[in-house]
């Protein structure tokens, strides 16, 4: 039994053909598998190791390098607040503090209902629209604590 959906597995198989080595598509593969599974569980690691023709150790070496990849479950909505300099200059620290209060969790925490997780992240490429945050892959820009509340409420109601 493969832990990911058949479509995803098929997608990997097809995409891997575009590269000269078996392991090349590893990083995207990990990210897409994580998107589907929530995190890179032991089974996921085993599956991907097999797919890429690598030892599980080697796959873990790669996972642990990339900050978006995780072996621990996150919330359904992963709130990533950028506090890097451009956002910092426009109030990101307060914004992050606000999120902590609102969600009742700290950096890398997960709410008890597993709906939200929070992370302070490095520059996400929204410097001219600071401060910014990403919830999963959606960008939210020119944020204020009030706007952030709306954003969180909107996800909560999804």
């Amino acid at each position: 039994m493969i832990p990911v959906s058949e479509q995803l597995d098929h997608f990997f198989t097809e995409k891997m053909k575009e590269y000269p080595t078996q392991r090349s598509f590893l990083v995207p593969m990990l990210l897409y598998a994580q998107d589907e599974l929530g995190c890179l569980s032991n089974q996921a690691v085993e599956y991907i190791a097999g797919k890429a023709g690598l030892s599980q150790l080697e796959v873990r070496n790669v996972i642990s390098y990339y900050s978006m990849l995780t072996t621990k479950p996150r919330g359904r909505f992963h709130v990533q607040v950028c506090t890097n300099i451009c956002c910092q200059l426009r109030g990101a620290e307060d914004l992050f503090e606000h999120c902590k209060q609102r969600l009742g969790i700290g950096h890398k925490g997960v709410t008890s209902d597993e709906q939200f997780s929070l992370e302070e992240v490095e520059c996400i490429g929204a410097c001219s629209w600071a401060p910014a945050a990403q919830v999963n892959y959606d960008f939210h820009e020119n944020l204020t604590p009030e706007k952030m509340d709306q954003v969180l409420d909107e996800y909560r109601s999804r």
Binding site: N84, I85, C86, E122, C123, G125, A126, C127, S128, W129
Partner: peptide, 9 residues
């Protein structure tokens, strides 16, 4: 990923 850069986007 360079902080301050958001043009390629």
């Amino acid at each position: 990923s360079e902080p301050g850069t958001c043009k390629d986007r």
